Amino acid sequence: MTDQTTERTGEIVDLPTWLASHLGGRTAEEISAEFHTLLDAVREHGKKGSMTITFVVEPPANGVESAPLPIGVESAVKAPKATAPKALYFLDADGNPCRDDPRQMAIPFQTAHTTTEFKDAH
């Protein structure tokens, strides 16, 4: 790998300005939407989240010095989620989860006979 220093003769483009123009502004719009999704999730769940923006710059094709540089922008959002509800289980003799405590005796349950007749309270 060679060490090349480039003398800059003009003004350096401001990164936010460049990002706003990348792919006709589509990238900035997508990143903004993801950022607001992250903000909403943090506010809703009360937990922290994060967003990473990565600039991927590839060397010119075939090593040609004057060839254009492919530049991509990638983003990754780690938004908080709601905590999934849990249910309680017991382990049976084989180690399988079950809803009823295997150490307790089962009580037979019968549904009472229903009627539509009411006794007079007099």
Rank of each mutant, 00 (worst) to 15 (best):
F90A: 08
E74R: 13
V42K: 10
P70T: 13
L39D: 03
A61H: 12
A61G: 11
K86H: 08
T111G: 08
E74D: 12
L15H: 00
F109N: 06
D92V: 08
N62D: 15
A79E: 06
L15A: 02
G24T: 03
A76H: 15
I12A: 07
F35S: 05
D14V: 02
G24P: 05
A87I: 08
P60F: 02
H45T: 01
L88M: 13
P97L: 11
T27E: 00
D100P: 00
H36C: 00
D100G: 01
T83A: 11
T114Q: 14
H113E: 14
G49V: 06
T83I: 12
W18L: 01
A93H: 13
M1P: 12
P97K: 14
G63N: 06
T2R: 14
T27Q: 03
A112C: 03
A84Y: 05
D14A: 04
Q110R: 15
D3F: 08
A121F: 15
A28Q: 06
E58P: 01
L88Y: 14
E34T: 04
E30M: 09
V73Y: 00
N96Y: 13
Q110E: 14
T6F: 09
T52W: 06
E65P: 05
F55R: 14
L38K: 07
R99W: 01
G95M: 07
Q110I: 05
A67D: 13
E11M: 08
A93Q: 15
T37K: 10
T17I: 04
S66E: 14
A84N: 06
P102G: 01
T54L: 12
G63W: 10
T54R: 15
H36P: 00
T111D: 12
R103W: 01
D14H: 07
W18H: 00
G95V: 06
T2F: 13
K78T: 11
P60M: 04
E65T: 12
E29V: 07
P80T: 06
P68G: 10
D120Q: 11
G10T: 07
M1Y: 06
S75W: 10
E30K: 15
D100V: 12
T116G: 09
Q104M: 11
A84R: 12
P16Y: 01
K48W: 07
F35P: 00
A76P: 00
R99G: 05
Q104P: 00
G10E: 09
A112W: 07
D94I: 06
T114F: 11
E7W: 05
G72I: 00
T114A: 13
S50K: 12
S32I: 04
E65K: 14
E11F: 02
D94P: 03
G95F: 10
H113L: 15
E117F: 08
Y89C: 07
H36L: 05
G95D: 06
P97N: 07
T54H: 07
A106F: 09
F55E: 08
V73Q: 03
K86N: 06
H45Q: 02
T17C: 00
V56M: 08
K86T: 14
